[in-house]
Structures are given as C-alpha cells and as structure tokens.
Computed example of a mutant assay.
Amino acid sequence: MSVQGSKSQVPLAAIATGLLALVALGAYSEAGPRQAAATLIGAVAGLSLYHASFGFTAAWRRIVTERRGAGLRAQFVLILLTCAVSFPLLVWGRTLGWPAGGFVFPFGVAAALGAFMFGAGMQLGGGCGSGTLFTAGGGSTRMMITLAAFVLGSVAATAHFHLWARLPKLPPVSLIREFGPHGAFLLTALVLGGLALVTLHIERKAHGEVAPGRPTVSLLKGPWSPMLGAVMLAIVGIATFVVVGRPWGITSGLALWGAKVFQALGVPVDTWPYWTWQRSALENHVLRDTTSVMNFGIMLGAMFAAALAGKFTPVWRLGRRDVLTALAGGLLMGYGARLAYGCNIGAYLGGLVSGSLHGWLWLVFGFLGSLLGTRLRIKLGMG
C-alpha cells in the first residue's frame, strides 16, 4: 500500500476517532467512567485484531488444510498471558481492590450443540465473534451481512433458550476452586503446551520445518506479528477484568441489539423467558450495556486501523455464494453462541481464563464444528 493511498484515508481515521469519542462520551453519560474506559478497551481490541489479522477462524482452518499452526500457538500465548493475571485476580482481586468474577458455567447437550454450530458457522461466515466485528469495522461488506445474520440468529435463540436449558448438563466446574490458582495455571499451561507441541509436530511432518513468524512492519499502520497481536489482546483481556470485573465477551451484546430491533418492530420479546431474566438490559439504553460498548469500540478501532493502513475499501458487488454463506454462517454462529454461553471470546477464551471446565469442552465441540465448516468451504469452492 502506497503512502499516498494511506494519506487518502486520513479523513476516515478522523471520522472513526470522532465516532469513538461520541460513543465513549455517551457511555460515560449513561454509566460513568468505567463504561467509557470499556469503550476504549474495545477500540484497542479492534485495532489489535485488525493489524494482527488475529482471528480464531483462519487459525483453526489452517492447521487442517495447510498444516500450519502459528495462529493456534499465538492463541495459546494469549490465553496463558491472560490466565497469569486473571487467576490471581479471581482469588485475591477483592482484597486488592479489583474484585472480579469469572465465567464458570455448566456444560451439556445444548452447549455442545451450540459450540458445534458456532464452529461450523464461523468457517462459512468467515470469522468468529470478534473476527466478524473487526472485519466488518475494517470495511468488509460481506462481513456486514454475516454480522446482521449473527444478530438475527442470536435473538432467535433467546426465544427458545428456556427450552434448551432443560436438557441434561454437567455441573459447573472451576479448576481454580479444585486446584487453587497456581495448580490451575500449571494444568492450563501443560495442556496448552502439549497442544502447541502437537501443532509443531504436524507442521514439521508436513513441511519439514516450522514457518518463520510474520514480522511486525509498523506499529501504527501494521501489519503486526501474531505474537504482538496475542500480547495486545492479553492486555485487552486483563484490562477488561480490572475495569469491568469479568472476562471479555462479545455475543450477548449482539443478542441485545437484535432484541431491541425486534421490540421496536412490535415483537413482544419482553415476554420471552430469556428477556424477563435480562429485563434491565432490554429496558436500558444500549450504551449502558458494557458488552455493546466494547463491541462498538472494536468496530471503530478496526475502522481506524484500516484507515491508517489505507485498506478501508468496501466491495459493493458480492456473488450469490458469498451472500448465502455469510447468511448461513451468521445464523449458525448467532444461534449457537447463545446455546453455548458465547463465542471463541466469551465461551472459549472467557471460560479458560476463568479456570472453567466448560471452556475446554467448548473448544472440543467448537473445533469439531469447525472441521465440518472447513469441509463445507472446500466443497463450495471457498478455498
């Protein structure tokens, strides 16, 4: 990308900055300084995701189709760096003045099916929860379709959530409670280290050597190395624990957006059991919802990053296959995420950095779904 091309998008970077400031000010007005800070944390996440091209979807696909594991290893670094701070915070945070709670949920038939649906959907849609937001914010018109379908699938799942909740499930299990923060961290490190060694073996067996890492070209304009992206996103996750008091999440905000749209159209979503439980979120301004303002921040941070890189170039003509797979992928992800307590960020990453067993089980079923989605991509000629 030429310097001239980058300069031509400076006004867009200014627009993204202005919109981010408006959202942060609105969040401050609605819920105070922590809400404004959450918006800015989201923006850092969006910039980091975009510049590092950091997504779970492509990394899970590449280990299967190309036998390359750098993306997975970067994810493991992200998880371990976050756990190194989140585990102590969950145990001693209140004493230190930073009280934090984790995502520790039961896992059963509905969650397994939801994680499987999500894994398949992210390959068809072209991105996970965070991937959909940052690529849409970065100018991808196809991912805007995926995002709209994601929102629709999310709110549709809330209509049936109480029925799925009746299916058998395992009780919630906290590794931190079972083994203490040090033991839980050691166990997490051993499992992730073992998985990293497996990816290295697969890569060396297929190619004879491990591919050199992609370097960071420019901190301001990108691209970044996957490891820099992992470090920055670990900072995002830790900051979320400190400021918000819980792990980073994505998809509950999308369900809320859909519910508010449905309500505006006259659909009585407030009578659905899910929204009677979440009545305050439905009744309050969307800027009072922390997940929503972080999502807005992700999209605007990615727009800012794309403008700095001179790569904000929406494509307005899409083929039928692109549109249909975006719709199918978004619907599967949205519906599946509600059943499985979230996406790669809220359920997988959020579960692991909370020391919850459900995060590991989500990984298993999500990866199985991703295998199906990858096979479907190949059959459909999506590469």
Rank of each mutant, 00 (worst) to 15 (best):
V10R: 14
W272Y: 03
V64F: 01
R288M: 11
L220F: 14
F87W: 01
A112T: 04
A24G: 14
T216D: 11
W272I: 02
G5E: 15
M303T: 14
M1N: 13
L287A: 14
R317K: 14
A157G: 10
V104M: 09
S356I: 00
A326G: 09
S154K: 07
L308R: 14
G222L: 13
A281Y: 07
V198G: 01
P33I: 13
G359L: 05
G297F: 10
P171Q: 03
V109I: 11
L349M: 02
K221C: 13
H182D: 14
W92C: 03
V293E: 02
G42W: 04
V269M: 06
T82H: 08
L352C: 04
G229P: 13
L47V: 12
A24Q: 11
T374D: 02
G42S: 04
W248E: 14
M117H: 01
L380P: 08
L25R: 10
S370M: 06
T17D: 04
R204K: 13
H182I: 15
V244M: 10
A14N: 07
V155D: 08
F134D: 01
G369R: 03
A340I: 04
R177I: 08
G237I: 02
V64H: 00
L49C: 10
L47A: 08
L72N: 07
Q4R: 15
I41W: 09
L300P: 04
L22A: 15
A230Y: 06
G355H: 05
G383P: 00
L380H: 08
A84I: 05
V198T: 04
Q75D: 05
K169W: 00
N284H: 12
Y274S: 10
G208N: 09
M227H: 12
L300W: 08
T271S: 09
P247R: 10
W275M: 11
L124E: 07
A196G: 13
S356A: 06
I145A: 06
G127F: 11
V85R: 00
P226V: 01
V173F: 15
G229W: 11
A165K: 14
G342H: 00
V323W: 03
W275R: 08
N284F: 05
Q75E: 12
F179V: 13
A340G: 05
G208E: 11
L372F: 08
G18N: 13
P33W: 15
L19Y: 03
A100S: 15
K221P: 01
T199G: 07
T82D: 07
A110P: 06
L331T: 08
H160F: 14
A37W: 13
V77C: 06
G383M: 06
A309L: 11
L147H: 00
L96H: 02
L80Q: 08
G102Q: 06
H51M: 11
I41A: 09
V210T: 13
L220M: 12
G359R: 04
G131N: 09
E203H: 10
G366C: 09
G137M: 02
M117F: 09
L282Y: 12
E66P: 00
L72W: 12
N344M: 00
L233T: 04
R62P: 00
P247D: 11
